[in-house]
């Protein structure tokens, strides 16, 4: 049985703006699942619907349901959802700028009952991110973007979640750093047995580390499958990986095919 399943949800902002129109996905225990799609497709909204952060933005799940470990969670408050084991790493890092690195990590473990282990887990986070250890007393706002992203992931690790929702961890980072972050995401999945739902713009990397992928367009899933299948799918190749034939750069002459070939767009 899957750890998380989103069944046919509809999300409305401010009572009028319909963002998700029958969105469904399944996240099996222990896997990495990635959710891809263009800007405005509703990826972040999907994550926020799961983590309960939608309510703080006047958003509402009006139809369908979300179940986590067999229990319906779409009516619960964000803090209950965090307590039940879902933790969202928000887009744009959102570290607490005026707190030190260590304090940020402590806040990450806010909902934990076993306060005695916090110290040990801070060391665990430092073993994943040695660079944070060097800066443990620094005010987080002055760190580089890459370090802030590491801190954001470290903060999530502190909560010991069963399911980690990651919203564009590669945003605004240099390619080498992106690679490093993705390797760490893979390690977290293997070593901490954390299930991961990964939203990304960098489709290539995301499909390479994930087991299963969903592709969203305007509020619902248009395509899904094992990542090996998706990587070989000609449409995915063209629209998400930027290749027309394997290994070949796309010529501007072929651009006119765009409308005709993107057939999952109605």
């Amino acid at each position: 049985m899957s750890l998380l399943s989103v069944n046919n949800i509809e999300v409305i902002y401010n009572d009028v703006i319909l963002v998700l129109k029958g969105m469904s996905l399944d996240v099996p225990e222990g896997k990495i699942v990635t959710l891809l799609g263009a800007n405005g497709a509703g990826k972040t909204t999907t994550l926020k619907a799961i983590s309960g952060l939608l309510k703080a933005e006047d958003g509402e799940v009006t139809d369908g349901n979300i179940t986590f470990m067999g229990q319906e969670i779409n009516k619960r408050d964000a803090e209950d959802i965090v307590k039940s084991g879902i933790f969202q790493v928000m887009e744009g890092r959102r570290i607490f700028k005026e707190l030190t690195v260590t304090e940020n990590l402590i806040v990450g473990g806010h909902t934990r009952k076993d306060r005695g282990n916090i110290k040990r887990d801070i060391d665990m986070v430092f073993s994943y991110f040695p660079r944070l250890k060097e800066r443990f007393r620094q005010v987080a706002g002055y760190m580089s973007g890459g370090e802030q992203q590491m801190l954001a992931i470290g903060r999530a690790l502190m909560a010991k979640p069963r399911l980690m929702l990651m919203d564009e961890p590669s945003l605004g980072l240099a390619p080498l750093l992106v690679k490093e972050i993705f390797e760490i995401i893979e390690r977290i999945n293997k070593e901490e047995k954390t299930t991961i739902l990964l939203v990304e713009q960098n489709a290539n990397l995301a499909l390479r580390i994930a087991d299963y992928g969903y592709i969203m367009e305007s509020g619902k899933v248009m395509m899904d499958g094992d990542t090996t299948d998706l990587l070989n799918n000609p449409d995915v190749k063209e629209f998400y990986l930027g290749l027309s034939d394997v290994g070949q750069k796309k010529s501007y002459r072929d651009v006119k095919h765009y409308k005709r070939r993107k057939r999952w767009l109605s």
Binding site: E79, R94, L99, E103, V107, H110, T111
Partner: peptide
């Protein structure tokens, strides 16, 4: 610390499970 975190970024604090 949770209070300072909330003062810093309310939504992020919410995502940490802070009430």
């Amino acid at each position: 610390i949770a209070m300072r975190a909330t003062a810093d970024d309310q939504q992020a604090a919410l995502s940490m499970g802070i009430s």
